[in-house]
Design a protein around this nucleic acid. Sequence first.
RNA 1: GCUCGAGUGGUGGAAUUGGUAGACACGCAAGACUUAAAAUCUUGUGUCCAUUAGGACGUGCGGGUUCAAGUCCCGCCUCGAGUACCA
Length: 929
Amino acid sequence: MDYNFKAIEKKWQKQWVDNKTYKVEIDNNRPKYYVLDMFPYPSGAGLHVGHPLGYIASDIYSRFKRLNGFNVLHPMGYDAYGLPAEQFAIQTGQHPAITTEKNLNRYREQLDKIGFCYDWDREIRTCEPDYYKWTQWAFTEMFNHYYNNKTQKAESIDSLIKEFEANGTQNIDASETEALSFTADEWKAKSDKEQQEVLLNYRLAYLADTMVNWCPALGTVLANDEVKDGLSERGGHPVEQKLMRQWLLRVSAYSERLLQGLNDVDWTDSLKEMQRNWIGKSEGAEMKFKVKDSDVVMDIFTTRADTVFGVTFMVLAPESDLTSQLTTPEQKDAVDAYIKATAKRTERERQAEVDKVTGVFSGSYAINPLNGEEIPIWVGDYVLAGYGTGAVMAVPGHDTRDFKFARQFNLPIVQVVIPEGEEATDTATWDDSKDSKAGTMVNSDFLNGLSVPEAIAKTKTHIKEQGVGDVKINYRLRDAIFSRQRYWGEPFPVYYKDGMPQMVDAADLPMQLPEVDKFLPTEDGEPPLGRAKNWVYKDAYPLELNTMPGFAGSSAYYLRYMDPKNDTALVGKEANEYWQDVDLYIGGTEHATGHLIYSRFWNKFLFDTGNVIKDEPYKKLINQGMIQGRSNFVYRINGTNKFVSLNLKDEYETTALHVDVNIVHNDVLDTEKFRNWNPEYKDAEFVLEEDDKYICGWAVEKMSKSMFNVVNPDDIVEDYGADTLRLYEMFLGPLEQSKPWNTNGIDGVHKFLRKAWRLFFDAEGNVNISDEKATKDELKTLHKTIKKISDDIGHFSFNTCVSAFMICVNELTEQKCNKREILEGLTTLLAPFAPHISEELWSTLGHSTSVCDAAWPVFEPSHLVEANFSYPVSFNGKMRFKLEMPVDASKEQIEEAVKTHESAQKWLEGKSIRKMIIVPKKIINVVVG
RNA sequence: GCUCGAGUGGUGGAAUUGGUAGACACGCAAGACUUAAAAUCUUGUGUCCAUUAGGACGUGCGGGUUCAAGUCCCGCCUCGAGUACCA
């Protein structure tokens, strides 16, 4: 019987479904292991060959853990809400639910063909009411909690209200939008509406007027991580700044814990680094600058408190509240014009024109709290409203941006730090500021002569004593804007009473997404939900018109897999206590600052409120590399329909054209298919190589339809089978490395499977397995492989596993080995990688149960013990010959053997041995001279 | 600009702790089988010199440490990813 992969794969995929082979339940007799893939957004294009890379790796690992006695949870689902389906709905009128369902079924079909061990009974879809009920529930919980900085955890808003009633804000240290201060009596005197407004200042899910990334083309607001280079991540449309009333999640409250938590997880350093940069902790001082002839006090944040004597002007962000307050009547027109001009610039323009220095004088002066000097206050858009206090003290001598601003507007520059190994110089001669932190203070009163770090510490103490400032820690991490002006997302469980938001009753969850006649904003610019009929609560109160963003549904999905059918909790206690957290999470690096921050935040909140038992959700995380496309080109002779092969193209004037990689094999074009590929090429003529082949050029590019380099896994499965696809994806290279997809070379792994198959059958195709005892060599081959595969899976080095299998099968073929003892071990080792063929061979070996439930072979070191070792003998570091010696030979014996060895004589001739280095079972190096 | 990662044959890659560089494949070449093709099998395949035996060179570049460097150290170059007025 030949290796008929089509029949085998069909057969076992059916058996797995029929026998529920991959169904998982809580089992207190076995240790748990949770392997999670980042679930996909099912796009209309379907899976290409790059998508399953991570899924295959996690599948291999899951099967490996199962064979080692673990109860493995390995689920899959869909991130089903999203913009593409809605954009498609706008264009075609097709309901996004229909598009999504269709795409999702297509994904499932493609995934099923690859033979994954997912427990599909646990599938979740973020757009299903049963699921998003818990997204909405978590939101209401966040609304009902605030973050207590003293206890460093979320606490109920009721306890905050009690504290307000008893003591006002006096003892409160909470995460807040702005600092508030009132007494208990003042609190009680507030109207209900006023109290609600105050509480929004503390809630973890809150409504606020905020500057947002507004994308006019998509008609919605975007989160910071959804904006790349000033363009929307999806679609690449321009994004501008706009003030809007929006829901936000107070992610910033968790900044420190999100940062500290990184120390406890096993992620790559680069990913942790990305998160650390995104959280952006900086330690510095907040200082108060009084404004001349005014009650206003400017708070500024600085990490360079030491340079306070070098401050020659102040700069406010155009969006700052203080800007209008501090603008004098004479300067009002100029400042207004400036604010207008900067507001019009999109985020992208601002970034593109980083070097363009703009600003305007406000007319006011601030007073330096340390030396009493009057310094002008300017407005400039290089200061960001969203970071620190939206105002800076400018030290042009020692800050590049301040320096440029000072030069642009002829503001004074004072040197207060002399960098190491330099002298004080005239600042007028400078081309750049001196930002270095290594240096000595000058022109700085009581700081003179100190080093920069000493001066920073001393200034901090000083300003604290003088009451003009305090030590302060700042984070770059912003609260997450949680409203989207779109249709295809989770509706908020929110209604409005007197214009104030209220949560709908828990019993009324889920709030189902209503039907609308069109998926566009209303005529008066309300989001699409404004079109829904009866979109009111309890027949009286209008419901929220925004929907939740993409990351809402993905923030706690890993918890739902633990207990997907539970209708009383997101995850039940028993399930959560058994499965606990994700042991291995595999996915793309593109979620480094979005999903992986939000999800950790969400989890920490659920942890604080006692809903889950783990503070961090993902113990170990691996980023699989991106699979790039490998494009092929044909060369058309200009002005003709004649195509010239790669090596001859320089003899002509040609244009390179992309050609579908699926009609090219090993860079050789199938000219017949090419003529049929595109009507334009029906009559194409070819200038061929000497061997009558048309060779294509190639390049590595993004995998996309327009490059004609998309390879569909279905086609590979059709031609070679799923097991070959799985092995080949792993064989391509290290999991974490990005690499181009190239179908060339797939024959190699396919041949390997056929060769492995032939070990079980004789030349006539009959099963031929021997029960004889295995020879020493056969056992050595098997156990060498057991060790290699076990070690390499442990390191997630799957590419080297495939090589090891090839070596193993090559050796067994050479040994003509058909011993059951050996073949059983090999089949089990191979099962995680190539499950279909392994099941078939396992049953050929006479087993009636699935190979998934076999036991991982035990490595027995004694089989690898050798009597002799073949030493490479080097002279002055260059290997010259091999010397076979018993492993227990003494150094003296070895030395003697080397000296007398025939091949050694020519290297020793006329030279003396200075030294001989002998590393047992490694190498011999003779130093001669 | 800053941070991180990577540069090894014609190609993908291997070398896990400093110890035989190029495992395993693809491709290519020659051969066997075949009427032929496919499939399969055998042999060869880093570069250069040499008929052979053999030798020299060789892991982006330049230095260094070491008996020994793809691997460690210093200085560069190139590519990729992330990030960017963060005070």
